[in-house]
Design a protein around this nucleic acid. Structure first.
Lengths: 335, 335
DNA sequence: TGATCAAGTCGAATCGCTTCGACCACGAGA
DNA sequence: TCTCGTGGTCGAAGCGATTCGACTTGATCA
């Protein structure tokens, strides 16, 4: 293995000069720097991560805690993960993957052993058991999702309440008077996951404000559940003309179920989803939707973390505004 | 931060004794060990990962390279990842997440900087550009999937050829005489990904052997493509009664498309899939399938790696035998 | 009664890098 | 002319573990 002293000898300088040339923390003459860079290339030098971490007390590794429980949509998690990794690399950091299962002990472990410099936590519950730990930890963290009490933490997410509201507004402007929200599976509500509740709040508030009739229905993430839900909605709310879906796996099956029940989409029934754009775009009939901007959220989370690592202040709450794209599944009521 | 010397002082022993008590590499009297463990608990000591890596030249971190390209089924990737992380933790290792995008340079980087001890690579192509590098690297690796030339590497995967064959055998034993394979998207074949080709080979060979009429059809991973595929199959092969699907997102849509075209499943048409059991089980009509045992493969990959890290010999090729579970989508021909 | 050996412990070297303080040379300002 | 600051470099002291050799002690065996 070639080490920094080898490079130094080869370039005719001291090890510290090589280090400074690499880090840029002290000025090095252009001439010397070039000589060093040439030696590095020639010898194929790579700084030893462990040694670097020991000496600098920076590992240049971020922890990412991913959920893998029922009720969460796996492709969305993966999109977050990929965008976190990609962005981290742009900032010269790597990403250590932790599962929710490891729990608090896992977080403490990677933080206390200095294996990671900072943490990103996904799928935060309203009263998440990990919050006290994250607040107490000596390492910075960013939560994707909002707990009930975000004070003292850095959180980022789509503004799900506004997203729910935007869907209602869209339907209301198209003349719809009776709307329903088909939401996440019941266990997600039981776990008291923030985004599910916020969508409901935004949805209900906007409907009330505009005087629409509205109902909310959690729904299992299976085609069979979608079918049952469609039947139930038509039975219980015959005057229903607008549906908001916040449950990725169910969007398409639900539309198909309504069709089977004899309703045309969007002529008889408008459907608007809250889901990643990819999913909305590549449906057979492109779906009007509020985007869940996974890539932006992941990238932003990393950037917030980098700023915190640099000792800079960052906002405690970052709520990305919703953006509704009208596609083929919404139309004016009765037309 | 509390370090090993603090523990040593507190327990009245030397640092090396603490180290040996922790690693078990030299005998330590029970009494001393208990004293040390008490001190560790009391002081809340955690060995510094970087220091440990530097001194022992072991980081206790594994790299996992995940694909995120079109044509691969994201939930399957996630299942692998979770099982790799879980198993790695059981062996006191962590997992660093790399994306395919980082390419060879990424592999070289984490290996050369000693950031990781070993690598797991998913989604291996038949003539993967990374193979020479993996062979040359001084760190052990395991591939999930088989390249054309696996010599000198350690590979593990489901025996996809046998899986294709098992599906045909199952259909043949039910009396079917004309079968079709609906496979992965065309780009997967174009990339020359091993498993796609192997399924085809096994499928065709088994059909030939038993004198069945057979055809093979790559298929985009969308509901619309599934619909088109169903129509085309019925048009071009009116005598078709058995379909093998190796394309997760399309399984369910394809069955629905056949139904819409007036075929009853399984009475008129038997369908057998190659997919994770979860997907087959939770379909509205449970699907007869050969399992893709993601959890087992991931766990096994880690165990192979651990053995290699311990300097033990491991088999170059590990092919898990297919296991077909008959569920509700296959029935005797004409029955 | 030594010689031998294993168990149990210690001290010191080492892993490869970063960083701090010091030093030199040189141009600018007084 | 003397200082002062600054660009550029070096040497040495860590960072916090692991590991190797050596030492003590007591038991075992001839």
């Amino acid at each position: 293995m070639v080490k920094i002293t080898d490079v130094a000898r080869h370039a005719g300088v001291s090890p510290s000069t090589v280090s400074y040339a690499l880090s840029g923390k002290r000025p090095i003459s252009a001439e010397t720097r070039e000589r060093i860079e040439a030696s590095i290339r020639e010898l194929g030098y790579r700084p030893h991560a462990g040694a670097r971490a020991l000496a600098s007390s920076r590992s240049n590794v971020l922890a990412l805690v991913v959920p893998f429980r029922s009720g969460i949509h796996v492709p969305v998690v993966m999109q977050f993960a990929v965008s976190v990794v990609t962005t981290a690399r742009q900032h010269d950091h790597d990403v250590l993957l932790l599962t929710q299962e490891e729990g608090e002990e896992g977080l403490r472990r990677v933080a206390d052993t200095a294996l990671v410099d900072a943490l990103i936590v996904m799928d935060v519950q309203l009263h998440d058991a990990r919050l006290p730990l994250l607040r107490a930890l000596d390492r910075p963290s960013v939560l994707i999702g909002f707990p009930a009490e975000p004070a003292g933490l850095t959180c980022i997410d789509l503004d799900f309440a506004a997203a729910g509201g935007a869907c209602v507004t869209h339907l209301a402007e198209l003349g719809h008077r009776c709307v329903a929200l088909v939401g996440s599976p019941p266990e997600v509500y039981l776990r008291r996951t923030g985004f599910a509740q916020r969508v409901t709040q935004g949805f209900t508030a906007a409907a009330d404000e505009r005087g629409l009739t509205s109902t909310v229905h959690p729904c299992e993430a299976t085609p069979a559940a979608a079918q049952a839900m469609a039947e139930r909605l038509l039975r219980e709310h015959p005057e229903l003309t607008g549906v908001v879906v916040h449950n990725e796996p169910v969007v398409q099956p639900l539309i198909e179920a309504f069709r089977r029940l004899g309703l045309r989409v969007p002529e008889d029934l408008s459907v608007v989803a809250i889901c990643p754009d990819e999913l909305a775009e590549q449906a057979p009939l492109p779906i009007s939707s509020v985007a869940v901007p996974t890539a932006r959220i992941g990238a932003r989370a990393v950037e917030l973390l980098m700023r915190k690592l640099d000792g800079l202040e960052v906002p405690e709450a970052t709520m990305l505004p919703p953006w509704l794209t009208r596609r083929a599944t919404t139309a004016p009521r009765g037309g």
